[in-house]
Design a protein around this nucleic acid. Structure first.
Lengths: 205, 205
DNA sequence: GTATAGTTGTGAAATATTTCACAGGTGGAG
DNA sequence: CTCCACCTGTGAAATATTTCACAACTATAC
């Protein structure tokens, strides 16, 4: 039985929440506590967890580390997903060193920028390359996921190169809608969309 | 009749798409063209538009500027929504000058940072303030929406100050889940969540 | 004028998702 | 042991959303 998409999205967010809870020193939690923190109703959370392999204990709640494992496993978040960041401006360079990626089974294995000068000047733990090597390095390093942080006018071209080189997912921060063929998963994260959603919820209801 | 939430989210994205189309010189479009660009099925798009005030013309499609107007109006995206950015690191400073906000009825009217030094050194068209003035300026400038771009450990405190000062919406980029009381709309944008979603779609299906 | 290819708008049907309600389990206090 | 407060898991019911199908319209070409 496949997991519904809304459930997948919630589970991804709950996973982050669990990491925070764990860092704060908790080792158990419950659907009602998760409701308080995440905002999702507790019965929805329990229903979501019913797609996992019975991770909780009736009466006493969920052991956080077991729950994390169950979610990760059901979502296929295992092994190491290799990603790269293209465009090392302010946004891109902050993504390069984003600490949260490491927990989540992701590893940034390469950064790219058009400017050779910038690459040479930047100090990073991630290996950096000039943009023209994008396809070569994606193949060589077996990169699955491309993160786009370039200006709007080149984002589509970058996406196409990523697709040609065989990435299976794209996370796009450029203010352009990237559309990909069947088999490549795209998420466009455009700040204005979120602001509009917020404003419409504020103004309408 | 209130507009379903999935429809609102799609309309927000379609609005950005329309802006791009218009910039490219188009003045008409159709649900099937929008399907190609946005990825949403054309019948879903038409159904979504049925919540608007008959914006299209049978047989010939939609006039982009009229459609934009109809969407903006139905979503309550009118007037000028005033926002501020807190935290002027790499992410925050790039948001300050994000060109897309101006189109979308948003205006960044203030930036805040803990470091007085940074504020004095930074060159920006937006007025900058030290963080301790947050509540004062939100009240004074009648700011509706707060954008959080601070490190994780102070994000919750910043959110609380925003809420106390009366913002009605929060867009949070810090890797912490901000939860707000009824009446305040929050969107948490956490890159790892999107990567996880992408990875689970890749690995599972 | 006629044919053609394209288009919208929308009820109704089909699906998907959320909510409800509750049986049954747990752990601690007295 | 008994009570109580709290918990999970889940089938069934209630809602919400998407998809379908098609009548009706438009523009263009010939």
């Amino acid at each position: 039985m496949s997991i519904p998409e809304p459930t997948i999205k919630r589970l991804c967010k709950i996973l982050s929440t669990l990491e925070i809870l764990e860092q704060e020193g908790n080792s158990f939690t419950s659907s009602s506590k998760l409701e308080q923190i995440s905002g999702f109703p507790s019965h929805t959370i329990r229903k979501d967890f019913s797609f996992l392999n019975n991770p909780g204990r009736t009466g006493s709640g969920y052991e956080i580390s077991a729950l994390k494992g169950a979610i990760s496993q059901s979502l296929g978040l295992v092994g190491e997903n290799r990603a790269c960041v293209v465009g090392l401006g302010r946004l891109g360079s902050s993504l390069l060193e984003y600490p949260g990626f490491n927990n989540g089974n992701f590893k940034i294995v390469a950064g790219f920028d058009r400017s050779v000068n910038k690459i040479e000047m930047m100090d990073s733990t991630v290996e950096l390359f000039p943009a023209y090597k994008l396809e070569e390095i994606i193949l060589q390093k077996k990169i699955d996921i491309g993160i786009i942080a370039v200006p709007a006018d080149v984002a589509v071209a970058v996406a196409q190169k990523m697709i040609d080189a065989g990435v299976r997912g794209i996370l796009n921060f450029a203010p352009v809608r990237v559309v990909a063929p069947e088999g490549v998963v795209v998420q466009n994260v455009y700040a204005v969309d979120y602001l509009r959603f917020i404003a419409s919820m504020i103004n309408q209801r």
